[in-house]
């Protein structure tokens, strides 16, 4: 099977829009946080797709001669940072959700609107 030329990029765009849709339609703050991780995962798909090389090996030369064709190690390093960013943002947001629930007694973004006008 051939590699369809633009397919993974369209998947990344689709996932981005799915995540945003989740945030917009959300009725629960935890749901909103999880939707945000979906937005984040679109960047994984995009980064992975642009660094991939047909027939390339993983960039680990443990059992590989040094001239081998490998996929791009840079995007993988960027993705590692991306993974960490995702976790930390989620941890922080969930802490806010928990605390907001304890203080405001609600998990719905519709009822957590103390700042209006």
């Amino acid at each position: 099977m051939k590699f369809p030329a633009d397919y993974p990029y369209f998947v990344a765009a689709w996932i981005l829009l799915c995540g945003l849709y989740g945030i917009v339609r959300s009725k629960h703050l935890v749901h909103m946080v999880i939707s945000l991780t979906v937005v984040q995962s679109s960047t994984y798909v995009l980064l992975l797709a642009i660094g991939f090389r047909r027939g390339g090996y993983a960039p680990v030369f443990a059992g590989l001669h040094t001239g081998a064709r490998v996929v791009d190690p840079i995007v993988q390093a960027l993705m590692l940072t991306d993974v960490v960013v995702e976790t930390t943002v989620v941890a922080l947001l969930l802490a806010m959700v928990v605390k907001a629930y304890e203080k405001g007694g609600t998990t719905s973004p519709d009822d957590l609107r103390f700042l209006r006008g």
């Binding site: 798909v45 992975l48 490998v70 996929v71 976790t87």
Partner: peptide, 18 residues
């Protein structure tokens, strides 16, 4: 998907985290 696309480092991080 990370494993399939030759990114074992990220795959490990993703398993442990994601």
């Amino acid at each position: 998907m990370f494993f399939v696309f030759r990114a074992p480092d990220v795959a490990l991080a993703q398993i442990t985290v994601g």
